[in-house]
Structure formats: structure tokens, C-alpha cells
């Protein structure tokens, strides 16, 4: 699972995030939404790791925990990009946290909301360099121009002082990518970076992210609901359901022979762009409901087509190796 036997870039161990149901700070809540519940995985250097699931499965929360936009309830996130020793990101504060932010960045879903409407392209891209006090003013200008060139906004100088409303969706997402990459991070969380873009510009943005990853040796956590996009971008994927990883493994293996009944259902529900193919009907019903104080048993029990009494009476199944590195959390496969 690791490249050339070295330590992984990121090792997530038992990561959990619970949100109290009562949102008031002075009242202790007895009920919690288990948004992320004991998630563990590793991301290697330069690897693109996919986190797949439906809305509300906790994939975005996981991403935000990894870049510390939220504080985890428990669990460890060990980050090690080789420059300094491994650090546990989950408890960082103050200066060390600010230093970690040079290494880990995030790209957001909505290109229309991810740029401050009152700031120019230059202001937006230069911000990380500025708050991290990196380089002189001229150095920064130079790096911003180079970055604009890299993300394909050329001639770069004509883009510097445009406002977001003067850019198209695809261009804005390129600016957002440039902002994330300008401090040369080693880890980037990409939260549905193409789902709100026009179909004909998606492939371009995907290709751009791949090129940059290769050039700057960036490890991605690629969060998406789109299995096809994940297949195209990620070498390994994890499928999440109600805060738990239910299946994890090499992308092709997971998609060709899914083990967990949820992964199977998810895959069979993806429309096929070929009118001659008729998909078999999906075997599970209904949508996802938030996991408010969930019972200890398998999270998928209520919707599972193959669940039995054993599933009902036992705890949520652990991730087990089902075939050569492909792990699934299910008693029945």
C-alpha cells in the first residue's frame, strides 16, 4: 500500500467526528451525529486516494478533518512528507499548525463561492504566500504568474487583476487550484472539484490536476460521489457509508468486483452512457438518513439485501481482507 516501502504521506487511524445535536455551547448534548466514525486509511506520497459515497456519508467531513478545518473528536492523523519528522495533525495548535498548513491544502466544490467576490485573481492566489509570509512582494508576483501559467490561464498577466465575476466556472476552478498549489503543498484535499463544472470543461480540469500532481508530487484525497470520476483519477478508493469505510482497495479491483453489498448497489446505480446496455435494477431501497446515535450493529443493516440475524445482533463488522488487499466490512461476504 506504500510506495517504495517508505512511510506513507498520511496515516489516518480511528478518526472520528461527532456533532452534538444541541448547537448551543452552554448546554451539554446527549445526542450526537456520528459524521465520521473510526475511519482509518493511508495515502502514499504522490498518490491519488478516492473517498466515495453519497451525500451525508461523512466524506467531506473527513476531508475537512484532515486539513484541520474541524477538530477531530478522536483518532490520529499522522502526516509525514519527509521534510520534518512525522507529526500528529489531529492535535496541532498555533505555530506548528500554521506550518502544517504550508503542506496541506484544499480545493472546494463550488467554483462560484470559493473566490471572494471583492478580491482579484492575484489577491486570491497570493493569499497563502502572504499569510505564511513567504517571499518578497516581487517573488510572490512571480510565483502567482508562474502558477497561472501552470493552470492554463494564459496570458497570465491579463488574468491577474480580474474579478471572479469576470471568469467562467472552469476558470474560477483553475484559480482555486492555483491558490491551493502556490505554496507547493505535498497533500491536497479535493472536494468534488469537477462536479459543478460544465461537462465539456471537466476533462480539462481533471487532466490539469493530474499533471500538477505528477509535477509537484502531490498526494490527493479526492472526495467524490461520482464513481466514474474516481475511477479515472484515483489509484485506490474507499467507499464510505454513514461515517464508516465499508470497502477499501485498488480502484479497479473494487469497481470490477465489489465485495460489500453497498458498493455493489452504488455501482449498479450509476447510469451507463450507452443506450444499448440495460442495467439490472438496484437491490436496495431508500436514501441515507443521518446517523444520530446509531445502534452498534452494522450501519448498513436497515437497507442491506443480504443481512441476517447475525448482522442484527453483532457490532458493526470490522474491515477484513476479502481478497489480496481489498478490504470490506461485512460478515456475509
Amino acid at each position: 500500500m506504500q510506495t517504495d516501502g517508505s512511510r506513507p504521506l498520511l496515516r489516518v487511524d480511528g478518526l472520528s467526528k461527532r456533532f452534538p445535536v444541541s448547537p448551543v455551547w452552554y448546554r451539554r448534548s446527549n445526542s450526537f451525529v456520528h459524521a465520521v466514525d473510526g475511519v482509518s486509511f493511508e495515502v502514499a506520497r504522490g498518490e491519488s486516494f478516492g473517498l466515495v459515497g453519497e451525500s451525508g456519508c461523512g466524506k467531506t467531513t473527513t476531508g475537512k478533518l484532515l486539513v484541520r478545518l474541524m477538530d477531530p473528536t478522536c483518532g490520529r492523523i499522522v502526516f509525514d512528507d519527509g521534510d520534518e519528522g512525522p507529526v500528529d495533525v489531529s492535535t496541532l495548535k498555533g505555530k506548528p499548525l500554521k506550518r502544517f498548513r504550508r503542506k496541506a491544502q484544499m480545493i472546494f466544490q463550488d467554483p462560484y463561492e470559493s473566490m471572494n467576490p471583492r478580491r482579484t485573481v492575484f489577491d486570491t492566489i497570493v493569499e497563502p504566500l502572504k499569510v505564511q509570509r513567504m517571499g518578497s512582494h516581487l517573488d510572490r508576483l512571480d510565483r502567482v504568474l508562474r502558477m497561472l501559467g501552470l493552470v492554463g490561464l494564459t496570458p497570465a498577466r491579463t488574468f491577474l487583476f480580474r474579478y471572479p465575476h469576470e471568469l467562467s466556472g472552469g476558470q474560477r476552478q483553475r484559480v482555486a487550484i492555483a491558490r491551493a498549489m502556490v505554496i507547493e503543498p505535498s497533500f491536497v484535499v479535493a472536494d468534488e472539484p469537477i462536479s459543478m463544472l460544465d461537462v465539456s470543461v471537466r476533462a480539462g480540469v481533471m487532466r490539469l490536476m493530474e499533471d500538477l500532481a505528477a509535477r509537484l508530487e502531490i498526494g490527493y484525497l479526492y472526495i467524490t460521489h461520482d464513481l466514474a470520476a474516481a475511477r479515472h483519477t484515483c489509484s485506490r478508493i474507499a467507499v464510505m457509508y454513514l461515517g464508516k469505510i465499508v470497502e477499501i482497495g485498488e480502484t479497479e479491483t473494487v469497481l470490477q468486483s465489489p465485495k460489500h453489498p453497498y458498493t455493489q448497489a452504488l455501482l449498479s446505480a450509476v447510469p451507463v452512457p450507452d443506450p444499448t446496455v440495460t442495467r439490472p435494477p438496484v437491490r436496495i431501497r431508500g436514501g441515507v438518513s443521518p446517523s444520530l446515535d446509531p445502534p452498534a450493529r452494522c450501519r448498513f443493516y436497515d437497507r442491506c439485501p443480504i443481512a441476517d440475524d447475525f448482522c442484527r445482533d453483532n457490532e458493526h463488522p470490522p474491515l477484513q481482507d476479502k481478497s489480496s488487499g481489498q478490504m470490506a466490512s461485512c460478515y456475509r461476504v
Binding site: R102, E113, S114, N116, E127, V131, Q132, A176
Partner: peptide, 14 residues
């Protein structure tokens, strides 16, 4: 709640 605020936090802005 806008993503650009989160982006500023991820960049290290206080």
C-alpha cells in the same frame, strides 16, 4: 460559511 473563508483558514490565516 463561504468556501473562500475556509480556503483562507487552510492557507493559515488567523
Amino acid at each position: 460559511v463561504k468556501p473562500y473563508i475556509q480556503a483562507a483558514r487552510v492557507a493559515g490565516g488567523g
